[in-house]
Design a protein around this nucleic acid. Structure first.
Lengths: 343, 343
DNA sequence: TTTTAGCACTCTCAATCTGAGAGTGCTAAA
DNA sequence: TTTAGCACTCTCAGATTGAGAGTGCTAAAA
């Protein structure tokens, strides 16, 4: 399938017009709308060809054309020009990060918010997460009776906390001593290396080490860090989701963490950092996403800490702009990670 | 307005039937459905009276009756019997908490999930938060160059983290020393008391103290802890939200944190721990909630740590069951807080 | 060979009309 | 005080219609 330049032009115009109006696009409309120097009949002939190729489709005999998923895919793959975001927009976004609090959580929240607002769709951001969890620091804090709060800091700034119920009460001094001991023994160790210090610990220390290792294993198991969502309600404004049943399916993917983690694990996680992945209409695999598209990217430091950012919206999505936005936000986050978190 | 027992019965039946079917309820329907020993004409007379009182309303002349918001309010205030959850349900829920990880975040997430599933509505849970922030422990961790990760543990297990950019690089040993010094000097201090140790610190220590105090002030300012949401998509299944525009308004309240915090601050936060607050149709105050109701409660330890739990659903909500569920979950969380977090 | 004007044809959509059905309020009798 | 009976009202689903939009095809023009 080799398209002529004119066919590419017409496909592009139809997609633009359809994104703008959410309506089927007729031959006359685009001739008038875009001042084409050809007649509507010519356009009709080209449209017939594009329909033949499976890039357009007619909802019914006497309606205009609508891009098929294949049509969008061709558009994203071949016709989208990598425009980049307007400078003013970049400035606005950068400024927001600049004056936000110096706190990973805030950054991620902000990233989600920026994505949602810029793309008027639902957005998701996962916290930076490393495939291999490396110990950095342990803190034990006596709370009530035999309850101890364990705070575990991992390389890359991930913090995990958990309660431990001890067999008998232990003083804060004693706890601090153990925490300090484990902390110095294990700096920059992974779970396997840490397991080897067991002989050097007393009974209490061993109990704590066990919980610690379990927690690290759990962290390592999960494919992504914490997930931040925003702009779910934006999706509800789109005409294709006027029937809320359609919207329910789409948003369910974001709400059901396990589903979302699977999705991310098998898509973005295979992409290079900085690369963009576009899923159109679920790509035949993700049934819940039949009505929507996602634009995803990976940010961070390829070998150590990475996370995902992305946007979920209707298939009829302004891909060029959305892709630019996702790419830009991913870059901003990459910079922040390498400035503050990198090992 | 004093209702006869028969009027109360009929109001109750109409509400039950309407909750079940989401349709206006006719006089014949409830006579047949509930085997009433009176004729439909009698019921009609009573319905006319209840309509007069403003507890019922007719969508149009020849339709059945629908409860008004006032009707629901009367029902919730006077007719709901405090049934409590079935024992098996209680067991199931308790079991889920029992076998979850020992981690506040997990508990809260689970609480939100349980609420959402049990009530088939959207749920929200805020992390326990105290009006007065009390220092417990400080940790400083060197990351990259002049960047330092500050981890602040507050009484009650709240953890705040933030990056600090120092003027010049400082070794981990030095950082640990300062952290230990501040930690021992300030245990159980509030921000005011902490400010007084400033003279005992060197320049670096002062810088850190400043960030620390700013962070504590910020925490104290915010009315609630972290917010966990779940079941947003449940709301989309309800027939009153079939038009997604209606749903958008409702869910927007949950998504827009500042809105939600305001709402919580001016409702549940004035309730006693263990008390239940029911907002029906926005109560004239909350415009965005005109189409929905919320059932809210407060959990925790009244004098120190409290958080909110609640459910958002359509006005046509099974209040008795929802109230029981919210109350039960609030109690479970209160127990967990007092067992592990209380001061 | 390619493009275009012209035209018959198809299909949707909004507007209008219709009758069935559900539910009411009123009245008069039980 | 309750109830049977009945006229009346209003909605809702289905059928019908005409206008409008858009197409595909054909034959003429470039």
């Amino acid at each position: 399938m080799e398209l002529t330049d004119r066919q590419k032009l017409i496909l592009t115009l139809i997609i633009h017009e359809h994104i703008r109006t959410a309506q089927p696009v007729g031959s006359r409309t685009i001739v008038e709308q875009y001042d084409l120097s050809m007649s509507s009949a010519t356009v009709r002939n080209e449209m017939a060809a594009l329909t033949e190729y499976g890039l357009l489709r007619q909802p019914h005999t006497s309606a205009g054309r609508v891009p098929t998923e294949e049509g969008y895919r061709f558009f994203v793959g071949n016709l989208v020009q990598k425009s980049g975001l307007p400078t003013t927009t970049r400035r606005t976004i950068a400024h927001q990060f600049y004056q936000s609090r110096q706190d990973v959580e805030q950054w991620l929240r902000l990233a989600a918010s920026v994505l949602a607002n810029q793309s008027q769709a639902a957005s998701l951001v996962t916290a930076p997460h490393s495939e291999k969890t490396i110990f950095k620091h342990l803190e034990l804090i006596a709370t009530r009776g035999r309850q101890v709060l364990m705070v575990l800091v991992l390389m890359g700034g991930e913090i995990r906390q958990q309660f431990i119920s001890l067999a008998e009460p232990v003083s804060q001094e004693q706890l601090s001593a153990i925490a300090a001991e484990i902390s110095t023994l294990c700096v920059r160790c992974d779970a396997d290396q840490m397991a080897r210090i067991r002989p050097q610990l007393d009974a209490l220390g061993e109990d704590i080490l066990n919980v610690l290792l379990a927690e690290m294993a759990l962290t390592e198991e999960s494919a992504t860090g914490e997930i931040y969502l925003d702009g779910m309600t934006n999706v509800l404004s789109e005409p294709e989701f006027a029937e809320s049943e359609e919207a329910r399916q789409a948003l369910h993917v974001l709400e059901e963490r396990s589903l979302l983690e699977n999705l991310l694990a098998s898509t973005v996680m295979n992409t290079d950092v900085g690369g963009i992945q576009v899923l159109i209409g679920g790509e035949g695999t993700w049934n819940e996403l039949r009505q929507c598209s996602m634009v995803l990217s990976r940010y961070g430091d390829p070998n150590t800490l990475t996370g995902s950012v992305g946007v979920l919206g209707p298939i009829r999505m302004p891909y060029d702009r959305t892709i630019s936005t996702v790419r830009f936000v991913a870059n901003v986050l990459s910079d922040l990670v390498s400035e503050t978190l990198a090992v």
